[in-house]
Design a protein around this nucleic acid. Sequence first.
DNA 1: GCAAAAACTTGATGTAGGTCAATTTTTTAA
DNA 2: TTAAAAAATTGACCTACATCAAGTTTTTGC
Lengths: 218, 218
Amino acid sequence: MNKRQTEHKRCISIVPIFNHLTEEEMNGIVKETTSLTYARGETLFHPGDVSSRLYIVHKGRVKIYRLSENGKEQLVRVLEPGDFTGELTLFNETTVDTYAEALEKTQLCVMEGVDFQQFLLTYPAIAIKVLNEISRRLQQSEEQSAQIALEKVETRLALYLARIAEEQKSTTITLPMSQKDIASYLGTTPETINRKLNELVDKGMIQVGKSRKIVITD
Amino acid sequence: MNKRQTEHKRCISIVPIFNHLTEEEMNGIVKETTSLTYARGETLFHPGDVSSRLYIVHKGRVKIYRLSENGKEQLVRVLEPGDFTGELTLFNETTVDTYAEALEKTQLCVMEGVDFQQFLLTYPAIAIKVLNEISRRLQQSEEQSAQIALEKVETRLALYLARIAEEQKSTTITLPMSQKDIASYLGTTPETINRKLNELVDKGMIQVGKSRKIVITD
DNA sequence: GCAAAAACTTGATGTAGGTCAATTTTTTAA
DNA sequence: TTAAAAAATTGACCTACATCAAGTTTTTGC
């Protein structure tokens, strides 16, 4: 196995949906993937692309977002190492309808949709893992939708901070993105996020430190 | 095959994800399903239930919705005959977090999650079909989320009417639900929907008739 | 390390649409 | 068929948040 393949394998092996495979099976996938590297700010794909590729993040982070006709941005999701994305409607030739942009220097493994589909047919257990992951995302997306529709910005922000605290298993958290991106994710504006953060400080619920550090006191 | 089984089979055979199965395969599923009937307004399940069942609509319609803490409702989706729902995170024991309520007299086929999972392992092609369907839903949900976050109510309503027109393949449409439910679906209030409909009439873009009929002139 | 870019901050002002309330119309179910 | 319930309609008022603008601070990339 050459150096490039070793690199791919390292990528595949960290992906939750693949990580229970045997050595041999994993090598099978490795053959089908190629590796790509993007610099911060570079675009992986954008609406109109007809790619049906599966992207798996190896190192770095990728943000997935949409634009409205008047140019406003909605951040859909941020991919961390081990996460994947791509048009998973593997049968129908669908057009991409989101933007994907590297938030920092990012390395990905890429697989053609048709290969991935073949792979799922060979390993149904993986298909079910993928199904689980997509279902989880669907549930999250529907919850997000409901929150934007029903909750005030302050509530959404508080819920968001609580989730980050849970993810980071600490009441001292580092925001994983800029206030601008948080605003875009929560369906509001950077100014409002900033003001609401201040309100939470005034209410004694949080303290804000340098470089996106926040201590949750309530 | 007895009468009840025939009934089930009729149910299974209309579901897009199952309808390419052979006679024999279909009979295999039929054995695993039971039939349920609900009256208009009855609840199929609600948050807190730990059921992992798969529900397939045979006749009638079911609305899936969420409630915020302050009691406001967000309509997530309406299931028509052939549609399915259920916690598809088949592995992890997840708790239901939505309400499901029959919009009219509704007949469903029900399968236990564990049976369904076994089924997907046996027929990987069906797993991929389900994956396709869930991916499509995810895409729709993310689009919905972005629209609520970024677009004005008038735009959302116009897009909604356009989609209904496309679904019904006509510029004379019958709204599939009450203004109250449309409001809930679009993340606004019945009063606002009513006013925006009137504005569209004033602008000469639509005409409204009796019993939820609308003619789209623009 | 430094210049440029991006992110953050704060104030002033405007408005889309939410809320409340009361009436009329339509639908439902017995 | 009809009474009761639900849905639609309309008006008056209010507020959460967007928008615009103008600094200030932090981060980035060379």
